[in-house]
């Protein structure tokens, strides 16, 4: 997995690329959570994510919960088809 963070004023757009599984979930977590912790509005672009499993979904849930605690925004802005499918499955459960 690779990532890029774009800064637009106080907003941070995080672009993740590749496959997000247990092996790299911590890297994704360590990229996103500190931005939210710092009070930034975080937009997550997942258009180039080819695979995501429950570990990746966990990062999204943690990010959303932290943003609620910090009274800031965490949004998914673009989602690839594989991620969309996994999210749809997860939504049945969340």
């Amino acid at each position: 997995m690779t990532y890029k963070v774009e800064e637009i004023d106080t907003k941070r757009i995080v672009h993740l690329n590749g496959e997000i599984d247990m092996e790299v979930a911590d890297k994704a977590r360590q990229t996103i959570l500190p931005l939210i912790e710092a009070g930034h509005e975080v937009h997550l672009n997942l258009s180039k994510v080819e695979y995501m499993d429950s570990s990746g979904i966990s990062v999204l849930i943690e990010s959303k919960k932290l943003s609620e605690q910090k009274n800031t925004k965490f949004e998914l802005v673009e989602i690839s088809k594989p991620v969309e499918k996994v999210l749809a499955m997860a939504r049945k459960f969340l």
Partner: peptide
């Protein structure tokens, strides 16, 4: 119980 854990098992069962 909206916590991240346990989703993997849910996916398998689905």
């Amino acid at each position: 119980n909206v916590k991240p854990g346990g989703l993997g098992t849910f996916f398998i069962q689905q």
